[in-house]
Design a protein around this nucleic acid. Structure first.
Length: 274
DNA sequence: GTGCTTGTTGGCCA
DNA sequence: GTGGCCAACAAGCA
């Protein structure tokens, strides 16, 4: 499920619940695939008694910092989510990782287990975190960088290119479709065929969609929406992309759906032409 | 039973 | 070596 803004929504949910708290106990299933490449025993040892300090979201990843130099990285994969439950909460089947404090149970749940938990010890943030591509909402995300990347991926469909995390960190399937729909670019266009004006529009819309998604899905400041989709406007493609017989919310014309770049893609044929 | 699913990775091939 | 495509991972849902 989670892309850029949804990841921030979940991070905020844990961060607000964990603020000022100390971990009393750690419940986990050591064999769960989400711990691949890490040591569940080390996580348990380091976090028990540790204080939550701060957290950040970047692209589709989150990093939670605890006292004692303990860093917990979370990727939610396709079906992961973070929840805050009551202290007496009993973990269910897909709750693979639960941190209990005096006030709350922080739950990582993931039925499909494409997500992962990473653990690092040290004074500085782990290397995998610092190597994440520069954010779309930063000065480093320039139209020149996008142009060069599209040249390098010239023969791939633009839809597939937008999903590449090395240049479009945090963009996932629905955001890619949303961006292309707003810029009237057909998802099957080869990246190398986009004209400079189209690249500029695409680049700008990446920023707008990220900004708007962040505000509407994760909320501003201390405000956290009651659920992920609570404030997403009906004028976005988002609400119509999975409907059978769905219509373009701008024009009322029928939407199309097909597999492009290995993913189900939705677009508006009346506006997005090859 | 069938055919999907908001993600990522490794292997194959040109 | 580089780029592009695809299956696989696993579980739930319609």
């Amino acid at each position: 499920m989670p892309e850029f803004a949804e990841v921030e929504f979940f991070r905020k949910r844990w961060a607000q619940a964990a603020a000022g708290q100390r971990i009393k106990s750690v419940q986990l299933h050591p064999a769960a695939k989400i711990f691949r490449g890490t040591s569940p025993a080390a996580i348990q040892r380091a976090l028990t008694g540790a204080k939550y300090l701060s957290s950040e979201a970047q692209a589709k990843q989150m990093l939670f910092r605890f006292s004692g130099g303990a860093w917990v990285g979370v990727h939610l994969g396709m079906s992961g989510e973070l929840r805050a439950e009551a202290t007496g909460y009993t973990p269910l089947k897909h709750d693979h990782f639960v941190l209990k404090t005096a006030k709350v149970s922080l739950v990582f749940s993931d039925p499909r287990m494409f997500g992962r938990v990473q653990f690092d010890l040290g004074p500085a943030a782990p290397v995998w975190w610092t190597k994440i591509a520069p954010p779309i909402l930063s000065a480093a995300f320039t139209v020149e960088a996008v142009t060069a990347f599209l040249q390098r991926r010239a023969r791939a469909p633009i839809k597939a290119v937008l999903l590449m995390q090395e240049r479009f960190p945090g963009i996932g399937n629905w955001m890619a479709d949303e961006i292309l729909w707003r810029t009237s670019i057909h998802p099957r266009r080869r990246a190398g065929t986009l004209k400079p004006a189209e690249i500029e529009a695409l680049w700008k819309e990446c920023g707008r969609v990220c900004r708007q998604a962040l505000d509407t899905i994760a909320g501003r400041g201390n405000y956290l929406p009651p659920d992920l989709n609570a404030h997403i406007p009906k004028t976005w493609l988002f609400w119509h992309r999975w409907e059978d017989g769905g219509r373009d919310p701008r024009t009322g014309t029928p939407l199309a759906r097909d597999e492009i770049g290995g993913r189900t893609t939705c677009w508006s044929p009346a506006r997005q032409k090859l």
